[in-house]
């Protein structure tokens, strides 16, 4: 069904556009004088940077992101140095843009954590695909994946922005572990 919307019929003074332009100038000058006033009195408010300026010299200067911020996903190790990921692939399954690719592998028998039996042979997160939604962190049954506050990654090629296992572990570092679920297996 089509809904027909009538165009408003403009009056002669509205057709001149001057009233609309004057309205815009009023809003702009109100903000201008308010900012000048704040600058003179040294008052800081809202999103103005520490220097009191509205603009920010990125990337030398960066936003202080809130604690709840969801940045880049990373892999972590426990205090014993064990990679916490057991390659269950739930994050790969839940990932909405399919940024995660895991290749699972049995842990070779001679390693100290061989009782865990399984770990990722390769773990890749394509940061060009990642939408920073945090579902991977939420779904992980092993608390092996954490989102950092980092949000800006630069690379010269697409391959460089696919984070592999080493890069993810390097970013994630070590986390405290309350349970040590696999220790007494």
């Amino acid at each position: 069904m089509t809904i027909k919307i009538e165009r408003p019929v403009l009056k002669w003074h509205e057709n001149l556009y001057f009233p609309a332009i004057w309205g815009g100038i009023k809003v702009t000058s109100r903000h201008f004088w308010k900012t000048v006033g704040n600058w003179i009195s040294g008052k800081k408010y809202g999103m103005i940077t520490s220097t009191g300026r509205v603009t920010m010299e990125y990337p030398e200067e960066k936003w202080a992101v809130p604690n709840e911020y969801r940045g880049a996903p990373t892999l972590v190790k426990d205090p014993d140095g064990r990679i916490k990921c057991v390659a269950c692939q739930l994050c790969e399954f839940v990932c909405p843009p399919r940024a995660i690719t895991i290749t699972p592998e049995p842990i070779p028998g001679q390693l100290p954590n061989a009782t865990v039996e399984k770990w990722p042979k390769e773990f890749e997160i394509d940061m060009l695909r990642c939408i920073y939604c945090g579902l991977c962190e939420e779904v992980c049954p092993e608390e092996a994946i954490f989102l950092l506050k980092d949000y800006s990654f630069v690379g010269e090629s697409r391959e460089e922005l696919v984070h592999n296992k080493e890069r993810l572990l390097e970013l994630g570092g070590m986390r405290q572990d309350k349970i040590y679920k696999w220790k007494n297996k």
Binding site: V86, A87, C88, L90, V116, E117, K118, P141, E142, K181, K185
Partner: peptide, 11 residues
Amino acid sequence: HPLDCPICDQA
């Protein structure tokens, strides 16, 4: 029963 579901093939 162990809490093996993350590494268990039957999951």
